[in-house]
Amino acid sequence: MDPSDSELIERTLGGDEGAFAELVRRYQSAVWGTVHRVLGSSSENEDAVQEVFLRAFAALGKFDRRYPFGPWVARIATNYCIDQLRRKRSRKVQLWSELREHEQERLLRDLSMERGPVSAGPGVEDSEGYARVARALLDGLNPKYRAAFILREVDDKDYGEVAAALGTSEVAARFRVSRARAELQRKFRAYLRGCGAKERER
């Protein structure tokens, strides 16, 4: 029978490197998901995943094993991503303007359509291109709102889980998701107005 997380933690604290590797193996997909969804696709994601687990390792002695390990490590991952977003924010908000004009228009058109990319189904072509432009819309959101939005909307977590991952109350988690939705709508409209003005100029 596979050892429990608690046993692996005990062995890790006793100096068993293999036990920690097994623990990482169990949760690395989840951490990859959080890092990728919150930070976006980047060559730095490997470093981010590694850093999350190194932080977890450093704090392992303080972890209360009466609670599950997964949400604890998810919280470390989310906090790490929020920190990274704060640091990189000034660079990230430039992304939208860095997009080529036809990419901007395509995203806005697809997002406004009654049956936008959804109608194309999961095998949608050029999903990487879509994701890139969709991320541009997310960039510039307050990192806390953005993380809450991703956890709730993309990872389908309930508000209790979102609150646990963010280390906040459920009320605050609801507020952040709601703010993120409203902010996205506001940005989306501003971009639409921008594109409309460009078309009128032509």
């Binding site: 100096g15 490197e17 097994e22 995943v49 997002l111 406004s112 959804v118 999903s127 819309l137 989306f188």
Partner: peptide, 29 residues
């Protein structure tokens, strides 16, 4: 509509995790 489409796009993103377990454990120790 915007949220439905945006979330669809984000969910369709393919994540390709690399197995980092041994490397991370080695680094940690």
């Amino acid at each position: 509509r915007m949220l439905d489409n945006l979330v669809f796009i984000l969910k369709a993103e393919k994540i390709q995790p690399v197995d980092l377990a041994s490397r991370i454990a080695r680094r940690a120790f």
